[in-house]
């Protein structure tokens, strides 16, 4: 639910990084924070007091500057991936304008990817939104593990598993190395802002 302040011409919208636990959502945000620090208006906030697992969410506000005469501000969030935090994910998803689904390329996480995507669809539905209609980008993360003697799902399999019906734009990535993170974010922002332009009738 983007906020459009017509008087000051400010648009604030929300992009959520969703996906199975330990899939690299927080690593994505950490990279974005480092790489786009010119655009960040504050520190990245990890409400995560238990070491390396996100218990609540991560939050990173980004300023995109003026687009079509409007100051565009984006709030990036991650959700906790572990299955037991469903109610937290629902809450973080409230008012979402766009989603990046961060899938784990490890073969052992194949089922977790599918369950998380189904969870996303269900939670969007309870928000009155449709996974087929919301601006959505798929990211196939951990591609840096190719050649590391660990079973990895081929990109085609990930796309067939997760994206055969959704047909969302998809990117191979290594959030750890920052590869594909910028491309994923830019595309997700593009889709989200395009949708907002239509929904908010946002013109110069």
């Amino acid at each position: 639910m983007a906020i459009f302040n017509a008087k000051d011409r400010i648009i604030e919208c929300k992009l959520v990084f969703y996906g199975p636990g330990r899939g690299g959502k927080t690593t994505n945000l950490e990279y974005i924070f480092k790489a786009f620090n010119k655009n960040t208006s504050s520190e990245m906030i990890s409400i995560n007091t238990m070491g390396d697992r996100t218990l609540f969410f991560d939050f990173l506000p980004l300023g995109l500057g003026k687009i079509r005469g409007c100051e565009v501000k984006i709030q990036l969030y991650t959700v906790p991936g572990q299955a037991r935090y469903r109610s937290t994910r629902k809450l973080v998803l409230k008012g979402v304008d766009g989603v990046v689904f961060v899938a784990d390329s490890l073969e052992v996480r194949r089922k977790a990817n599918l369950l998380s995507l189904r969870d996303l669809a269900d939670n969007l539905k309870s928000e009155g939104k449709n996974i087929f209609r919301i601006p959505l980008v798929m990211q196939y993360n951990k591609r840096d593990l190719e050649g590391h003697e660990v079973p990895l799902l081929p990109l085609e399999t990930l796309d067939m598993d997760l994206n055969s019906k959704l047909k969302a734009p998809h990117f191979a990535a290594s959030a750890l190395k920052g590869e594909g993170v910028g491309a994923t974010l830019k595309h997700a922002l593009l889709l989200t802002l395009r949708r907002l332009q239509t929904d908010l009738k946002w013109t110069r």
């Binding site: 330990r22 697992r53 490890l106 052992v108 996480r109 590391h148 003697e149 079973p151």
Partner: peptide
Amino acid sequence: RLLKEAEIYRSHGLLSN
């Protein structure tokens, strides 16, 4: 190979795997 796999899962926090 299995040892490497186990270590990768451990480093990625996939402890059960």
